[in-house]
């Protein structure tokens, strides 16, 4: 599939975020901050309950780039963590192509991307670049 400027990318809808996933992500990523799996620790930190690692939603956006442009196509990924993700949230990744450009004779797509929660609130947003060859 070829993309042009202004194209919306096919959305990626993830399974609801579960505590088991956060425990596994802690192990996979090495981020054992207890606010991501222990409600008491989260409440002590002023939260209502555990929240997902910001990097989990960035991982979903990485998958989104991969499902759109192919594994290994990534050139650059940059995001800002804007909102917290609670347990049970269904994260949807979406984006739009902002430019088709070239570098060293290779074509790439530049996109704006975002992860939104079940209420449509943006939790993580930024830009991605992916090689098109």
């Amino acid at each position: 599939m070829s993309y042009k400027q202004g194209d919306a990318l096919p959305e990626l809808v993830k399974a609801p975020v579960s505590r088991m996933q956060l425990v596994k992500y802690a192990g996979a990523s090495g981020d054992f901050n207890p606010i991501h799996y222990d409600d008491e620790a989260a409440r002590a930190g002023g939260l209502e309950g555990v929240i997902a690692h910001g990097m989990l939603s960035m991982g979903f956006l990485g998958q989104f780039v991969e499902t759109t442009f192919g594994a290994g196509s990534y050139k650059r990924l940059e995001v800002r963590f804007q909102g917290m993700v609670k347990l049970g949230e269904v994260i949807t990744c979406r984006g739009v192509v902002t430019d088709i450009a070239q570098e060293n004779g290779r074509e790439y797509a530049a996109c704006e991307i975002e992860a939104v929660d079940s209420d449509g609130r943006v939790v993580t947003a930024g830009r991605a670049q992916a090689w098109l060859d």
Binding site: R76, L77, E78, R80, F81
Partner: peptide
């Protein structure tokens, strides 16, 4: 402490 932004270059 917050992890505010993250960037990767490949």
């Amino acid at each position: 402490r917050l992890h505010g932004e993250q960037e990767f270059e490949y």
